[in-house]
Design a binder for these strands. Structure first.
Lengths: 154, 154
DNA sequence: TTACATTAAATGTAACAACAGTTAATCAAA
DNA sequence: TTTGATTAACTGTTGTTACATTTAATGTAA
């Protein structure tokens, strides 16, 4: 379905305008899809992202400031996000020995187990994409999006 | 700059995974850019979108339910968004004569003037894109994104 | 060592969003 | 016409997010 039909708007100013709207719409569409997967397991998209960052460094700890840096949408609340993970016992927090201002965060076994399960759900969802888009097409879009953002340091 | 550098992650599971992250990251990047433009003028991205929907039908009124349908991210708060526009006198609200449950919303002259100015700012921002991406490339991405979402009725 | 600037994390706040539930108008069937 | 279902908008609640500020630890220069 074309983006015009999706959002019931017939006229875009130009191909660039159409592209911008299309990217944001598609992003929301993806986010919604992911959210449907995550919600039954009691984690939000943001918490899921943090968990994956933690797993990426496991078994090494990750500082809160590192998490903030790596989050897709830069936001100031990595602290509170980690709080939520602690409550669910998906992560642990310890004072960093080399810098007592910093806090080391590590994913727990429970967190790793949850991620494993979520990854499977996620893969199932991604399989739907593979029927509609070839691997080459996926690469093409990624390259073009990189080009779109070129020279913009985050 | 490639998406790997942007988010400091070296490994994606596959091109599809990379694409999903890239789309969401790029969407945030665009949203941030737009927000920077809008903030000095006291409107949020959502309010700006509503204003453009209203202008699209001007001088005809738009019902709150129509606004909800056309919003990029379907959300239940079109009511409260319209409230904000009323406070700033960017829109007016009248009871729909043919259905007293419904509410007709119309953009004001002040709203049209503001949109005009914002469009100019926006165009300036879009010009940056034109230097990095050809029109054909913009069209290509849009078509591929449509294909990605194909068969998904919002 | 003291003073000052910088950094990391946490917190207070106000605005915003998601979701459920309410109210009121309309429609449709008995 | 009355009853019940549906629809449109609004509201209440809860959790999030952005932004600014605070607290504490570290680095640096006098």
């Amino acid at each position: 379905m074309s983006i015009e039909t999706d959002i019931k708007q017939t006229a875009f100013r130009n191909p660039y305008h159409r592209l911008l709207v299309n990217i944001m719409f598609t992003s929301n569409w993806i986010g919604d899809g992911q959210m449907q997967i995550l919600k039954p397991h009691g984690v939000t998209l943001q918490q899921y992202n943090v968990l994956r960052i933690l797993r990426g460094q496991y078994p090494n700890p990750v500082k809160v400031s590192d998490i903030t840096e790596r989050m897709l949408d830069k936001m100031s609340n990595a602290s509170r996000l980690v709080d939520k993970l602690l409550l669910k016992q998906l992560a642990e927090r310890t004072e960093c020995p080399s810098d007592r201002r910093a806090v080391d965060v590590v994913i727990t076994q429970k967190g790793l187990d949850l991620l494993k399960m979520l990854d499977d759900c996620q893969s199932g969802w991604e399989d739907g994409l593979k029927e509609r888009l070839s691997e080459e097409e996926a690469v093409t879009i990624s390259l073009l999006l990189d080009k779109l953002r070129k020279g913009c340091d985050l």
